[in-house]
Design a binder for these strands. Structure first.
Lengths: 201, 201
DNA sequence: GTCTATATGCTGATAGAC
DNA sequence: GTCTATCAGCATATAGAC
């Protein structure tokens, strides 16, 4: 976010191609290290080493540690959004599919879980990111729920907003339990919830 | 936990009464400070100042910062367990009541949320605490769900373990959303979920 | 039991050479 | 663009005086 204008400059000139590539490389390395060690235990130095740079060298590309992590988050979100079907009708299945995939990337699940709780402080660098993210997700899932109601798959007596909020909450909470108990089948539980709700007359 | 034998000695002799009282005072102060600043931003020094001790003075009572926080957690859990009805049949309403109460103690909600994600690393001081806690909660809530099924309030076609897991997950996830969006009525949403599940034929 | 003083180690960030 | 060197700050933990 603080890097927005930097990104814009990047796209424009070929001379910066290497810089762009290096930035991408750093972000990839950051994802890898975080995935292994978790967010709390990852320092700028750790990421720098993983990418073969000194700490100062890495900070040439990102203004601060927070800017780097915000960018990691933003990129990760992009990837997830690509996974989410454009068709509202398919988004519950899409959410379940994402949960299935998340079981393969524990470090990222942890990054989200830790950052989203930390970010509750309004001054936190990622606070706006997360409030906006949840607002968008609730709205999109709300549409999906309404679509299901219109198709007659879900009772119209259920409040769509409430169901969307609960689906999101369940997804997050299942991840918390799964991190402690990796045997838990998150996707299956979420699917079970949706199936149960669809049976409400 | 590292303080287990210390506690045992404490109970035995009147001479240690002051020490016990001070320990309690420290734990109370810790809860207050954490409730205000969140877990991450709370140092041993902060708690020491709140209780009128130096940092070294406080660490006379607790072997380490981790031991202190583990004890804070353990105590908090005790309080919550007292809130939870002994009668399995009333425990869903009990969970909803706890959610209602949690809206008044944001710092503690955050302590739990942050620690429970951090603790997913098996080496973490609170790892065993949380895995065990979730196991117990799932089992107890599972009993409750089965009790509801036996009373005919909930369809027996639903898997009790799965419903218990989802209820817990929803509670946790609602807290995540509420920390970012304090307007969210966690208790109402959870109640809505339970009501919906009870309508499944 | 409580203090001051300090050891030690991390962190993120910056200055300036090349 | 990348480095080395270094800074200031904060943390936990400990030694030892009182």
């Amino acid at each position: 976010m603080a890097q927005g204008s930097y990104d814009a400059d990047m796209g424009r000139r070929g001379a910066y191609a290497k810089g762009v590539a290096k930035r991408e490389e750093i972000l990839d390395a950051a994802l890898t290290v975080i995935a292994r060690n978790g967010y709390q235990r990852t320092s700028v130095r750790d990421i720098a080493e993983a990418v073969g740079l000194s700490q100062a060298g890495l900070l040439h590309y990102f203004a601060s540690k927070e800017a780097l992590f915000a960018e990691v988050l933003r990129r990760r979100d992009e990837v997830d959004r690509e996974r989410m079907p454009a068709d509202p009708a398919a988004r519950v299945e899409g959410l379940i599919e994402i949960m299935r995939h998340n079981a393969d990337v524990p470090g990222l699940v942890q990054l989200y879980a830790e950052l989203s709780t930390e970010a509750s402080h309004p001054e936190h660098a990622a606070h706006d990111f997360f409030t906006q993210r949840y607002a968008v997700l609730r709205r999109e899932l709300g549409e999906t729920v309404r679509a299901a109601q219109e198709r007659g798959e879900l009772s119209t007596s259920l409040d769509a907003e409430s169901v969307a909020t609960i689906l999101l909450a369940s997804a997050d909470g299942l991840q918390t339990q799964w991190m402690l108990e990796p045997g838990l089948d998150m996707a299956a539980r979420l699917e079970h919830l949706w199936a149960a709700l669809c049976r409400v007359p």
